[in-house]
Computed example of a mutant assay.
Amino acid sequence: MPVPKSEFDSLPPCDFYTPKELFETDQMYTVYEIARLLQGLEADVNIDRETEDILLDWAIPWIMTNADDLVVAEPRHDDEPGYYGLKE
């Protein structure tokens, strides 16, 4: 159900990192690592599954929105996700 804006103390702009701000140019990242980076966490930090699921809700649309600036690599093994990196 919608909530009036007046119920919130602060309404900062909805700004997200650009791929260039988030990624190292010579690295590839999984969607899980991207989810952590978008929240200001280290890519390899250990988080619980429930939190990770919430963070993925932010990461997947971010990847889709920034697809023109990204390259993708297929998983190296059947049990790992694909990888994303900066398009050069």
Rank of each mutant, 00 (worst) to 15 (best):
V31T: 04
P61R: 01
V45G: 14
T51M: 07
E80Q: 15
L86H: 03
D78T: 06
A67Y: 09
S10K: 08
L70C: 09
D68L: 11
K20N: 10
R36F: 06
S6I: 04
E33V: 02
M1V: 15
K87G: 04
C14W: 14
R49M: 12
E21N: 08
R36L: 10
L41I: 04
K87S: 10
V3H: 07
P75K: 03
L70D: 02
Q39Y: 13
P13L: 05
P2L: 11
Y84Q: 03
L41C: 07
R36D: 03
I47T: 05
L37W: 00
L37V: 12
L56K: 06
D44Q: 12
D69T: 01
L56C: 08
D57C: 15
G85M: 09
V72W: 12
E88D: 08
D69S: 07
L55P: 00
G82K: 06
I47G: 02
E33N: 03
K20L: 09
P61E: 00
L37S: 00
A43P: 06
K5F: 06
K87W: 07
P61C: 02
A73T: 05
Y17T: 07
T25A: 11
E50R: 12
Y83F: 12
P61Q: 01
S10G: 09
D53I: 13
E74Q: 07
Y83N: 06
E88W: 06
V3L: 08
I63C: 03
L55Q: 04
G82E: 13
